[in-house]
């Protein structure tokens, strides 16, 4: 999980092109991160811009949300916006969420792991005639995870959704995340991790 110190549009090249205030903040999306990092804010407070939520206010908000039936709470104050979600990650872009904020129930109980818990039953035999082949869009090296020791993007039997990253094909030090065009179930993985792949080489069989 990250904390935005400040998120502003700066008069860098063209001051006239400043975005409206509503665009100045982009909450830190962390739902997809398999292992959210704890935030560690190391900067002195004086470096930070002024109109913010303080820790007490954030704690009160989290407690209020926890004790309610509200799933999601969004609040804006000055340039800062905070979003608190029940049972998921706490997503904020204030500059005051520190490790000392006991807050974040989701940090204590990592939601992503819990969500991944249901064990997929052994894949039933599938008919092969209506399967869709996902091919490599380029020559490169096929990777099933974002790095050594990192979790695999997908396994056989996994349900995948459109837009989900299935693999990386690296070419010329460019890392290309190959996303699924369809939703379905991975039936077969046709290339080995870290092996070279050709243009149009089949990588996955998917049952839509």
């Amino acid at each position: 999980m990250a904390t935005a110190k400040k998120a502003n549009s700066k008069p860098v090249a063209k001051p006239s092109k400043n975005v409206p205030a509503s665009k100045k903040i982009s909450p830190t999306p962390n739902k997809v991160s398999p292992a959210p990092n704890k935030v560690s804010v190391t900067k002195p407070a004086e470096k930070l811009p002024s109109p913010i939520f303080n820790i007490g206010e954030i704690n009160d908000l989290i407690n209020a949300v926890n004790h309610s039936n509200v799933n999601e709470l969004k609040l804006e104050k000055g340039d800062f916006k905070i979003t608190i979600r029940q049972g998921g990650t706490v997503i904020t872009t204030t500059n005051q969420v520190t490790q000392s904020a006991p807050a974040a129930p989701s940090v204590a109980a990592p939601a992503p792991q819990a969500a991944a818990a249901p064990v997929a039953p052994p894949p039933p035999p599938v008919a092969t005639d209506n399967l869709i082949t996902i091919k490599s869009p380029m020559i490169g090296t096929f990777y099933r995870s974002s790095g050594p020791g990192k979790p695999l993007f997908v396994n056989v039997g996994d349900e995948i959704r459109e837009g989900q990253v299935l693999c990386i094909v690296e070419a010329m030090k460019l890392f290309n995340e190959i996303e699924s065009e369809i939703s379905g179930k991975i039936v077969k993985i046709l290339a080995d991790d870290a092996s070279p792949v050709e243009y149009d080489q089949p990588l996955f069989l998917v049952q839509p």
Binding site: A2, T3, A4, K5, K6, A7, N8, S9, K10, V12, A13, K14, K17, N18, V19, K23, K24, S26, S33, N37, V39, S40, V41, T42, K43, N95
Partner: peptide
């Protein structure tokens, strides 16, 4: 939009 119209500055991130 121009590159850098929106800049997000973070203290620490993975």
């Amino acid at each position: 939009s121009t590159i850098g119209d929106v800049i997000i500055e973070l203290i620490e991130i993975d």
